[in-house]
Amino acid sequence: MLLRYRGGEGMIAWAFHRISGVAIWAFVLLHVVDIYLVGGNPELYDEVLKVYASFPGRILEVLLGAALLYHALNGLRIIIMDFWPPLTRYHRALWYGCWAIFIAVGLPVAYEIMAPVYGWPEFFR
């Protein structure tokens, strides 16, 4: 769909915004319940935490951060264009700007999250 329908960057930005939004929403459902367990069932919470801290858990953690960062940056792009409509002319440049910040901020964060699994040095903790 994304490749055949010739909507260009604006359409992909829109599709990614929806997909990342739903993913974050689904994690919020899980996260409110797991934090509720801290008071309701502390032993079970510590068990859930071990899953989060495992290798697959950390992969999902990085993906969550990626969804969050993309949604935040593209959301700012939407707000900029909504309130300063002439800037809509530059919607492509703004989108590529989002990706530049996404890479610059996201890579060090992803590195730090995965570092304990591989025994890599942690630079920020």
């Binding site: 510590d46 935490l49 969050l68």
Partner: peptide, 18 residues
């Protein structure tokens, strides 16, 4: 973003037990 950066970047979730 602050919540994520503090609890996943500054601190390791593995240490965030009850």
């Amino acid at each position: 973003l602050a919540h994520y950066l503090i609890l996943h970047f500054v601190f390791d979730p593995a240490d965030q037990d009850v």
